[in-house]
């Protein structure tokens, strides 16, 4: 075990020496290698790419010199950082995951060529060195894909959140009256956001009446109805009244069929009548100006 380890230590240091000796050649060939399939000059500048390649080669050399070829170990910390940053920035720039991983994989050929020339007389040593490089570069390539995937997921999550916030505008209709027009299907996550933003708006605008308009909600099932009820109850606990408007006939039927109790909730057919009720509750009346009409 120990001799094998020492052996591979020596081998990896040997590769490092090869890299140091042929740095310029490897870099040039590597960049040429990339120009075929994965350059994407539309997304990244030549000079930036060159800088990234040079930095990576340097880190690779430093790592190999330590003799530790386990990519998970701490000596490769800086390399992981660099590849992580690279993957994240490429994910943001719109690269494909395969194009990102190719940054690492395309280094294989130039590196192999140099290593082969260096130990062409010792077949066994050559095979071992090849194995070390392959294993190392493969785990680096996988790492870039992993980071790439994660940052894409993060992006999607963030966009979903933004979409959620955009899709629940709380509008002020009058001093003390808020309206929340809900459009689209209400699922649990969305209802929670709707509920929280409505309650927050009630506090911020000091509104005693909130109208939840569900004209744009295609269906109401038991879960959605329960969420609506919870919102109404929470608003009441804070000292505000809710009116639910825009209950379409088929939704009214569903609610009754499902046995949902909306008796304690004020409902109105449309937003206009809900608003009229709200104003009445606030003691406001409108009078038509007969001189103008």
């Amino acid at each position: 075990m120990n001799t094998i380890l020492m052996n591979s230590n020596k081998k990896s240091a040997g590769i490092a020496a090869v890299v140091a000796k042929n740095e310029e050649t490897i870099l040039a060939e590597w960049i040429r290698e990339m120009s075929g399939s994965v350059r994407r000059t539309d997304l990244i500048k030549e000079s930036d790419l060159r800088a990234q390649c040079a930095q990576f080669l340097q880190l690779m050399k430093d790592g190999l010199e330590t003799g530790n070829v386990n990519f998970q170990s701490s000596v490769w910390e800086k390399t992981r950082e660099m590849l992580g940053d690279l993957s994240r920035s490429r994910a943001a720039l719109g690269f494909m995951p395969s194009e990102t991983a190719s940054f690492v994989f395309s280094m294989k050929r130039p590196l192999f060529t140099q290593v082969r020339q260096d130990s062409k007389d010792d077949a066994e040593a050559l095979a071992e060195q090849m194995w070390i490089i392959t294993e190392l570069l493969d785990s680096m390539g996988l790492y870039t894909t992993e980071v790439f995937q994660k940052s894409r997921e993060e992006m999607i999550r963030r966009q979903q959140e933004e979409l959620l916030e955009l899709s629940t505008p709380v509008v002020k209709l009058w001093d003390g009256v808020l309206a929340l027009p809900v459009i689209g299907t209400l699922d649990s996550a969305r209802t929670q956001v709707v509920m929280e933003s409505l309650l927050q708006a009630i506090v911020e605008t000091n509104s005693r009446i909130a109208i939840i308009d569900i004209t744009g909600v295609p269906t109401v099932d038991t879960v959605v109805a329960q969420h609506l009820l919870k919102t109404v109850t929470a608003a009441r606990l804070m000292g505000a009244d809710c009116i639910i408007s825009g209950v379409r006939p088929q939704i009214a039927q569903t609610i009754v069929h499902l046995g949902i109790n909306l008796l304690d909730v004020t409902t109105k057919a449309n937003l206009a009548s809900a608003f009229a009720l709200a104003l009445r509750k606030l003691g406001i009346t409108f009078v038509r100006d007969t001189q103008k009409s």
Partner: peptide, 13 residues
């Protein structure tokens, strides 16, 4: 009872 915070109201429900 006045001034119940939104988060408190949601939790209570």
């Amino acid at each position: 009872v006045v001034g119940m915070q939104p988060a408190v109201a949601i939790t209570l429900v």
